[in-house]
Nucleic acid binder design. Structure first.
Lengths: 344, 344
DNA sequence: AAAAAGAATGATAGCGCTATCATGACAGCG
DNA sequence: CGCTGTCATGATAGCGCTATCATTCTTTTT
């Protein structure tokens, strides 16, 4: 009869993974002391700590974080939910989050909604089930069920990208103001026939917020604010193909305000290819301040949004909150900056 | 005295979260039956299933996945470890993985090594602690400790990006061959003074594998294969700044083979800005087939690597393995394609 | 010197779920 | 009629860890 606990009657151990109990035995202490030596080193004596760490090394112990999380109901997982991974903007925010959170020993559980709020709800449910320490989500809009679920959740929630009164913490920028800013610039430059071009505005509702700002400025100046909405995803390709549509519908167009830099750069490169002079024949403006815009000639006029910074700041605020400190400001405006290029 | 189990003496419940036991009670069944109704619906009667689902809805039950994972030692988490999030190449692989895995109910635990193999080892340790169902990592190179840890792990391991004999499963492409391919193209076109430009090749060792292929072809043709290594990260900016260095060191250069499209596009745009004719004055080639290269004029000659496809294929193979099916091929060559532009 | 406080360790009992085995009900069969 | 087999359900006992309280021993205080 084997005395191996792995093979006795009611035993349910699935793997031959080393457990903390084995480490403790090998170090000559109780399991709880071994646990403290690893997670709360200040609570044990130097000798004990050394013995336990040696045993860990000797046995190749890898802590079972699932068990630890269940017992302590803390997980050091942070759920991050974004609407898209194609749009590099979200990736840069993730990057900022990731570098700050990982340095503090948190891991990222990544979810992608593909701009579907029902999908977001499902992801939130799943992530709550993992006892995440906090949740980061892009945007302030959620469906009803999701809202209810989050309202009753007792961990920090961080809504990023857009500024506004969120459920808990918020780091973002004012998209309506950004739209106003660029529109003012174009009007100041003397442009009158200005078209706003966006892609899938129902989904990318922040782009339509920028359009609202744009429209307000133009109307205040007594100018029409035509909108061209593309039904493909915002990309270089979509931008380059958008020119035809714009000129077909609005032949007198002198300036185009694009919802983002991908579209704008695509249009800029396409316009050049067909021999148009920028900005004389057509002025082009974007949004985001992607590196690409700074390397094309003429340089793209755009609005710089601090995306990585947004991620880093969001992460820092979360960490502050998670370590029990009081958060004074729930809303953080990271602002934006008009980046004047030669394309307008 | 309260009979509320949340407030009795030795109770350790931290939250007032609904548990499966409460759902079961409300549905008039035992906890284990409720569990089956949710995770193994075929095992219970229609009536029971309906009752349980109604109770779930009624109480707003969110399953505690941590507890479930501990009990079953299955987690439906997939660890994904990449060396960088700045390089869009990895993001596209993640995207391919993510869309395929999420559709099958797996979640991604994301880690970033910043090209540090020790950091990779730490991440692997952490992720194994989460009982991940599988692990995806970029590249075949790991440090000793990491190798040992993974060799003893009894779940699928998928190494992506480069082709070769890995620890378990592998989906990638042959970078040496890709380097050869582009070098052959340049030589065939009649170029002789060809410089290879890469950034931080010790870290981005796949770029140096491409250089190896490049060098082999040039040497076979009796041509020198000078290398210019930049110490900044590969980016548009680095590419545009690299021109000076290249011409300073190799004034006669007629063609530059860049390690990636960001560098190449940056150089192309910078060359244009200073009035050079491409490809007459200087030919430029890249690697990756980023959209940007297809929208600049002249179009960039590059090598198309199927990055999202790589992610999707890797995910599919993992899923196949996780659902118990036998995997016949452990290595998958996703190949690459020479994309002829006008820049060479 | 006695009392109080602190430091280090341990025993116990869960966290919320599921694997395993056991049970009872009922159908089919010779 | 008992026998076997299948189906639906339940009782029990963990998964590997940590919160809580208890204990021992040392240090400080008055």
């Amino acid at each position: 009869m084997s005395k191996d606990p792995l093979h006795t009657a009611k035993n349910r151990r699935h793997s031959d993974q080393i457990t903390l109990t084995q480490v403790a035995k090998s170090a000559g202490v109780s399991p709880i002391t071994a646990s403290r030596a690893l997670n709360n080193p200040a609570k044990v004596s130097d000798t004990t700590r050394r013995n336990v760490l040696e045993a860990v090394e000797r046995l190749g112990y890898v802590p079972n974080l699932v068990a630890g999380s269940l017992a302590s109901s803390r997980s050091r997982l942070i759920a991050v939910i974004v609407p898209s991974l194609i749009n590099s903007v979200f990736v840069e925010v993730i990057k900022g989050l990731q570098e700050t959170l990982e340095a503090e020993g948190y891991q990222i559980l990544l979810g992608n909604t593909d701009y579907d709020l029902d999908r977001e709800y499902q992801l939130v449910r799943t992530f709550l089930g993992w006892s995440c320490s906090a949740l980061v989500t892009a945007g302030l809009r959620h469906n009803k069920a999701c809202h209810k679920l989050l309202a009753n959740w007792d961990h920090p929630i961080m809504e990023v990208m857009e500024l506004g009164k969120g459920m808990d913490l918020n780091v973002g920028l004012d998209h309506v103001a950004a739209g106003r800013c660029m529109a003012s610039h174009l009007v100041d430059k003397g442009y009158r026939d200005i078209v706003y071009v966006g892609a899938q505005l129902a989904q990318d509702y922040r782009a339509s917020m920028r359009y609202e700002g744009h429209k307000a400025v133009l109307q205040a100046n007594g100018i029409d604010a035509p909108l061209v909405e593309l039904d493909t995803l915002g990309s270089l390709k979509a931008g380059s193909e958008s020119l035809d549509q714009v000129f077909a519908r609005h032949p007198k167009t002198k300036a185009i305000h694009f919802a983002n830099d991908d579209l704008a750069a695509g249009a800029l490169l396409a316009a050049q290819r067909r021999g148009l002079n920028i900005p004389k024949d057509i002025a082009i403006a974007g949004f985001n301040g992607l590196p690409l815009g700074q390397h094309v000639t003429p340089q793209l006029t755009t609005i710089l949004s601090p995306r990585e910074e947004m991620g880093r700041l969001a992460a820092k605020e979360l960490i502050r909150r998670l370590s029990g400190k009081n958060v004074v400001r729930r809303q953080h405006d990271v602002g934006f900056k008009l980046q004047l290029g030669e394309s307008t």
